[in-house]
Simulated assay, not measured.
Amino acid sequence: MDERRRSGADEAQNDWIEWGGGDCPVDGNAQVEVRNAKGWVLSAPVFALKWHSVVAYRVVPA
């Protein structure tokens, strides 16, 4: 899993989808970037994440 912190300006320029929690909203084995409440950004396949801690996500193009 790739983990890093991004600046607010960088995030504002991207297509983040706000997420209120619950089951994974993305099908299959897609690669996604997710942001948690602390502002950390993780890049991982959807099956490797705990979606209850996600506040925003975006699908990474293949």
Results as ranks from 00 to 15, higher is better:
35 R>E: 09
49 L>C: 06
42 L>R: 12
51 W>S: 12
43 S>M: 12
51 W>D: 04
38 K>A: 15
20 G>N: 06
28 G>T: 09
24 C>P: 06
57 Y>P: 04
27 D>C: 04
27 D>L: 09
21 G>M: 04
43 S>K: 11
20 G>S: 06
8 G>A: 08
34 V>S: 00
60 V>Y: 01
51 W>R: 09
49 L>D: 00
17 I>K: 10
28 G>K: 08
54 V>H: 03
14 N>T: 09
17 I>L: 05
56 A>T: 09
50 K>V: 14
10 D>R: 12
60 V>P: 02
10 D>Y: 05
16 W>M: 02
52 H>A: 14
13 Q>T: 10
39 G>T: 08
33 E>Q: 15
34 V>L: 07
61 P>G: 02
34 V>C: 04
41 V>D: 02
23 D>I: 11
31 Q>V: 15
7 S>G: 13
27 D>K: 09
13 Q>R: 13
53 S>I: 13
20 G>I: 01
11 E>T: 09
32 V>W: 01
60 V>H: 02
46 V>D: 08
36 N>Y: 04
46 V>W: 03
22 G>A: 06
45 P>E: 15
6 R>F: 00
29 N>E: 15
51 W>K: 10
41 V>P: 07
58 R>H: 04
22 G>Y: 00
56 A>P: 10
49 L>Q: 05
1 M>R: 06
29 N>V: 13
47 F>C: 10
14 N>Q: 14
25 P>K: 13
14 N>D: 14
34 V>R: 01
37 A>P: 03
56 A>R: 11
17 I>M: 07
21 G>I: 05
7 S>Y: 00
17 I>E: 10
34 V>I: 15
38 K>M: 13
1 M>L: 11
13 Q>F: 07
53 S>D: 14
4 R>Q: 09
15 D>T: 05
42 L>P: 01
54 V>A: 00
25 P>Y: 06
32 V>R: 00
9 A>Q: 07
12 A>K: 10
44 A>G: 10
38 K>R: 14
50 K>Y: 12
46 V>R: 02
20 G>E: 04
26 V>H: 05
